[in-house]
Design a protein around this nucleic acid. Sequence first.
DNA 1: GACAACATACCAACTAGTCGGTATGGTACT
DNA 2: AGTACCATACCGACTAGTTGGTATGTTGTC
Lengths: 210, 210
Amino acid sequence: MPDAMHSSKTRLLDAALTIIRARGYSATRIEDVCETAGVTKGSFFHHFKGKEDLAVAAAKYWSDTTGAFFDSAPYHRHEDPLERVLGYVEFRKAILTGKVQEFTCLVGTMVQETYDTHPAIRDACDASISGHAAKVEADIAAAMKQRKMQPRWTAKSLALHTQAVLQGAFILAKAKKDAAIAADSVDHLRCYIELLFAEYSEKRNLPDHR
Amino acid sequence: MPDAMHSSKTRLLDAALTIIRARGYSATRIEDVCETAGVTKGSFFHHFKGKEDLAVAAAKYWSDTTGAFFDSAPYHRHEDPLERVLGYVEFRKAILTGKVQEFTCLVGTMVQETYDTHPAIRDACDASISGHAAKVEADIAAAMKQRKMQPRWTAKSLALHTQAVLQGAFILAKAKKDAAIAADSVDHLRCYIELLFAEYSEKRNLPDHR
DNA sequence: GACAACATACCAACTAGTCGGTATGGTACT
DNA sequence: AGTACCATACCGACTAGTTGGTATGTTGTC
């Protein structure tokens, strides 16, 4: 096995992430991916069965790389699980920098085009989103348990809501060519989570501070 | 001028909405649109300069038809502007029925694929989203003024946040082939708005979580 | 030699867009 | 009224270019 970090397959996957995030799945041409990766079509079809196979592999590669990225983020160091949840949200806000295609989500982009026509890609995207949400859900559930909360909502639905806000924020950022609008929505998400937990933590005996 | 409701141009636009919402912009073939509309390619190119022109026209048509649809919705009858805002959110939740491509948003789908390559389409999508958000913003601003609120957030950012949640909820619904997950996110949005306004209505403040 | 990892050349299918043409209806002039 | 003229609406075969995929090498390594 040659250097996995810079193998042709890895370069093809990296190129796929870049191009699909900018243009979407359908508009992404295999030849463009090859050119960006610096390999030829023969090499591409050695590593992937076809375009759909690339998309599925790209979704898994995306899950793996972003998963490792978030696992190494500093917010995990908080003792309080709620601090970890809020730290996660702040971290998501902090990485809204640079060009739009550099902070938006591969699988959120792909699933829009493929959910009805490419079940394998849809499943791969769902697995990526759900897997990521599950990590957030764990911290939310821990924070709820710590406070003995029994709200009408579940940790799972709130975790998925965080993903919905982020995905929607990406769409607004694309429409407006502006990351700031996405950051505003993430601020609202943070505010919501604080309100949800404040309601239970303080039992409405809330100090005046404004 | 022939019957505008069933003219070839209108049928082409209706067909475009259906197909683009299911497959996205790039994967939509002009011939499919023509076939669904029951017209020929010659007719298509008589009415539209090309595929991009169709997409721009479809975004405007989408704004017009959905705009009229929401304008006629019953939640506008509430006297209290906050009731109108919450009524809007409930209405958005109520229409999450049927197949995914029947309740998802055309412009949210299109902008993902076109923001970087088709500025004209992106602008049309932005206009559609922003125009819709502005209507929500008006009610939010009225509710804020009524309560003499001066929060850190603005009516505009909250209105755009509602759109982000909805767009994100659509992505989750597509990934999971399930409208229920979208409804859960809209519930969280309603809960958030209630908390934001309850905070001011009931004169209670929040502790600082940082 | 066997196999993985590439490269080159090529094809078949698809598709956006073109183009010459027809049908219809309005208008203006005589 | 008749007719010449013109614009709009529409048709469908055709083209030029694109693109996913294949067939057939070549090279390096165990």
